[in-house]
Amino acid sequence: MNRRNLLKSAIAVGLGAPLASVATATPAHAAGNYDVLVTEQVKNKVMLFRAINLWTPENLGWEWAAPAQSAWARLNDARFRETDRFGWVCMVAAGGGKVGMVNFGDDDALLWSATPGGNPHAVEYVRSHGVVVVASSESVSSALPYEGYLSVYAPTNADDPATLGSEPVDRIEYTGAHGLWWDGSFLYALGSWTLAKYRITGSLKGARLELVQKYGWPTRFDGHSLDMDFSDPSRLLLNGAQAIWSVDKADIRQLTNIRPQSPGVKSFARAVDGESFWLQSIDVTDPVPGQSRWWNEYVQFFDPTGKPSYRRGLDYYGYEGRFYRARIASTRLT
């Protein structure tokens, strides 16, 4: 692969500092002049591209392929986070049951992995405590049959992710857990019925999630992804109830519907200039009776007014990709 040089601190987001202090370090840009990290489930890879460029093999900035094991099937989530020992890593979660930490360096080694089970949909690294939190949307075992969990993994050395254990130190029942976001101060979690805000208490193996605020919907919301809003550091973006929402981090009960009539969205992101993109299930864009298809071969981009502008797929790779999630990368290609 033609490896690009990386400006690894160009737009560091939520990596141990509150987003309010990070947003000013996020450069203004022309439309599409940022990098997108996608999970692709045909080849089961994480892939990094500049949004505005054609997504050709020559323009591929970085990729990582999951091990050929059933527990690593269906990469659902990927995000860059910074660690004290290894520098930048890519946190990955697979529907088959695995999560891991990939060395975003010369060897792309799998530095740590665990098997929380239950169809992991999101994984987050909390640098201040060295803790990993996983959102699983289903029961993790016959002994733990609840429909969704937050699993907490903790290290013996907070500065060294290699000391993370393979078994969780705590689990919290959380129906349909799909989304997680750490903003440097608090961890936010999204599920089928609930949006919650936690702080991390304790240290090392004593680390736990302490509930700060919780919002529950009266009818099933089916929340999917959580992401920062690059256009407003005081807010997060989420999707559920067939719409896109903006939420005030200071009071998560304050939600604004910013894009109604948006069914089947798996992830949504908004850049600093208001340009946005989503991954919408192909069941919505190209329905086939009797089939359930949760991916799309294209990531759809929108201009700041919300009008469709361009889309990106793997047209130059000789196969139709199956993207599940797409987000603005917290590293930047040169």
Rank of each mutant, 00 (worst) to 15 (best):
residue 185 S to H: 15
residue 181 W to E: 13
residue 160 D to A: 08
residue 132 V to P: 02
residue 134 V to R: 14
residue 170 D to A: 15
residue 189 A to M: 07
residue 189 A to E: 02
residue 204 L to F: 08
residue 139 S to M: 06
residue 127 R to S: 06
residue 142 S to Q: 14
residue 171 R to F: 03
residue 178 H to S: 14
residue 182 W to Q: 01
residue 150 L to S: 01
residue 182 W to G: 00
residue 171 R to G: 09
residue 194 T to N: 01
residue 162 A to L: 09
residue 133 V to P: 06
residue 202 G to A: 04
residue 159 D to T: 12
residue 215 Y to P: 00
residue 175 T to S: 12
residue 163 T to D: 05
residue 140 V to P: 13
residue 200 I to E: 01
residue 217 W to F: 10
residue 159 D to F: 15
residue 135 A to H: 15
residue 143 A to Y: 11
residue 183 D to Q: 13
residue 149 Y to F: 12
residue 161 P to E: 07
residue 184 G to H: 07
residue 140 V to W: 12
residue 216 G to A: 00
residue 215 Y to D: 03
residue 142 S to K: 12
residue 205 K to S: 06
residue 145 P to Y: 07
residue 191 G to M: 00
residue 187 L to N: 04
residue 141 S to E: 10
residue 159 D to I: 03
residue 127 R to E: 13
residue 193 W to I: 07
residue 201 T to Q: 03
residue 127 R to G: 08
residue 174 Y to E: 08
residue 208 R to S: 13
residue 173 E to F: 05
residue 214 K to D: 04
residue 143 A to H: 15
residue 165 G to K: 04
residue 193 W to V: 05
residue 173 E to W: 08
residue 125 Y to N: 05
residue 152 V to T: 06
residue 173 E to A: 15
residue 216 G to D: 03
residue 147 E to H: 09
residue 210 E to W: 07
residue 170 D to L: 15
residue 156 T to M: 03
residue 178 H to A: 11
residue 217 W to Y: 10
residue 145 P to L: 07
residue 141 S to T: 13
residue 172 I to H: 08
